[in-house]
Structure formats: C-alpha cells, structure tokens
Design a binder for these strands. Structure first.
Lengths: 137, 137
DNA sequence: CAATACCCTACCAAACAAGTGGACTTCATT
DNA sequence: AATGAAGTCCACTTGTTTGGTAGGGTATTG
C-alpha cells in the first residue's frame, strides 16, 4: 500500500500540474485546496524538490512549481522518492537492491514470481506521468 | 514491500510443502532449518492456521502441516492473510476496500492507474500457488 | 519590512519484530 | 490409569521503527 504521504504527494502534484507555467504556487494554497496538513506538506514538497521534481522560489511572490514538463516525470519515480522500493522484495528491486539473507544458500522460491510482479507493475507506472494526473477518463 | 513476517511465512510454507503428506512438522524444525525466530514463527503459523491454510496437531508427535493440496492455495491469499491488502490504495482493493476521503469530491487521478497495477499484480499472484514454491526454474 | 521557503527539534501514536511465561493437549511408558 | 515429556496455544511485554503533528527560528526575496 502507498503511504498517506505518497497519496498527499500525488494530490499536491495534481494541483501543481494544473498550475503548470503559471508561476510559483504557495504551500498554503495547496494545503487548503487539497486538504493536506500544512507542515506535513512542507516536508513532502521539500523532499520532491531535493529529488529534482520541483523547483521553489523564496520570498514574496515565492512558492513551488514543477521543474520539468509534467510528461517527463513518471509516477514510478514519485513513489520511489516518497515511499522507497516498488518491488515486493529487496532482492528484486532495481533501485533499492539488497541481497536477501538465506536467499543464496537455499533456493529462493519467491524470487522469479516477484520479478514478474515487479515488471508488470513497472510496465504501468513507468508509462504514466504527472500529466496523466489531470486527464479525466 | 512484503514485511519480514510475510517473507518468513513463505519460507516456512516452502518447508511445509516439501514435507507435504509426511505428517506434522515441528515448529522448532522449521525454525532451525529456515532460520526463523522460534516464537515469532509460532505466531505466524497460528495465524495461517486460523486462516485455514494450515492444520496442526497438539501433543507428542504433533506439529503443523498444510491443510489442502499445495496447488489449491494461491500466493495472493498468503500475502492478504499476513500483510493485508495487495493493492496500492484502499479504494482499489478487492478484499480490503475502503472509500477514499477526498476521492469523490475531487477527481481521483490515481484510481484507474492503481486498478491497472492491481490487476497486473493479481494476474500473477492469483495464478501461482504454494506448489510453485518448490519448483526450481 | 513583510512574505515566504527552509530547516530543526521535539513529540505522540501506531505498527512491527521479537521475546517471555505459562496454560492446555496429546501420546507413550510404566 | 498416572505420569511426564513433547507439543501447540495464547496473552503479555518490550524495544524499535515509522507516520504524522506541532512549533519556532533562519534565510531570502520583492
């Protein structure tokens, strides 16, 4: 399951996509419009900025805005930044790989199943972008 | 990510599949062979029993064993018992459905993406069974 | 100077991982 | 039958991590 933090991140990003190319947006505006706790949102946006997704401007007339075109950032990327690994096991993660203990000595039966799950999931999340967040079905 | 508990569960089940139809297996034997903390494993097995996956026999000569044929139990089922929802959002979960707050008023952009992810994931996990745990590839 | 992002610390609650102690059940031996 | 060892069963406790909240102070810009 996505953490609430990740869900907030997507909600905030949705707002920022709608305001794309209209200058910086106040944290407080996003917080109000999307009903996200202000201080919590502050941390999330900062994290997204440090990860290169957002840009910010300080002082009067400042705020947050999306760095690159929304179609350039994939949903999978956002999840990795906020929640970490997408894969179900560390030993099948592409970006957060860790060798399983007891996974070499004994035959790791889950391994190939979880690779299949990962590929199926990424097949979707790597092809949807921030722009899709505002496209109604 | 799967919790360590779920990983333990799969490791333990792998052992039980190997010993299927050979009578009850001791918790202590599984704990030793698969390097799982004994008392923790005790709780996991009990949970799997209550969920109808395992059967147990008390007293001397007792132990745990798989209730139905290993090909009858899907991996998705095990994950749901131990870790809960497989879906990434409560509002797209089949077995743990919950209505999202702010998902009705505003357009929930993630919804259909997460349904796609869920279906892709279940397409795999609903077709792999405990028996697959012991089939080397 | 005022508005705003940035940053730091502390705090609370829940979940997770693991361990403890003991009650209850079954079986084999005598 | 009585006994004791071998087992599961189960309610607690403990320590750690994580998710989320709250407040205040600093730096930067118009």
């Amino acid at each position: 399951m996505l953490s609430r933090k990740a869900q907030y991140a997507f909600r905030a990003l949705t707002h920022l996509v709608e305001k794309y190319d209209q200058g910086p947006v106040l944290i407080s505006e996003i917080s109000k419009k999307k009903k996200i706790p202000l201080k919590f949102l502050e941390n999330i946006l900062l994290e997204l900025k440090k990860a290169g997704i957002l840009e910010s401007k300080k002082g009067k007339g400042g705020g947050y805005y999306i760095k690159n075109h929304p179609s350039k950032t994939h949903m999978a990327n956002i999840i990795r930044i906020v929640d970490g690994p997408i894969a179900m096991l560390p030993c099948v993660s592409l970006y957060f790989y860790e060798r399983c203990k007891n996974c070499n000595e004994e035959f790791c039966a889950l391994h190939d199943t979880m690779i299949a799950v990962r590929d199926a999931t990424l097949g979707i999340l790597e092809h949807r972008t921030l722009q899709d967040l505002t496209i109604p079905r």
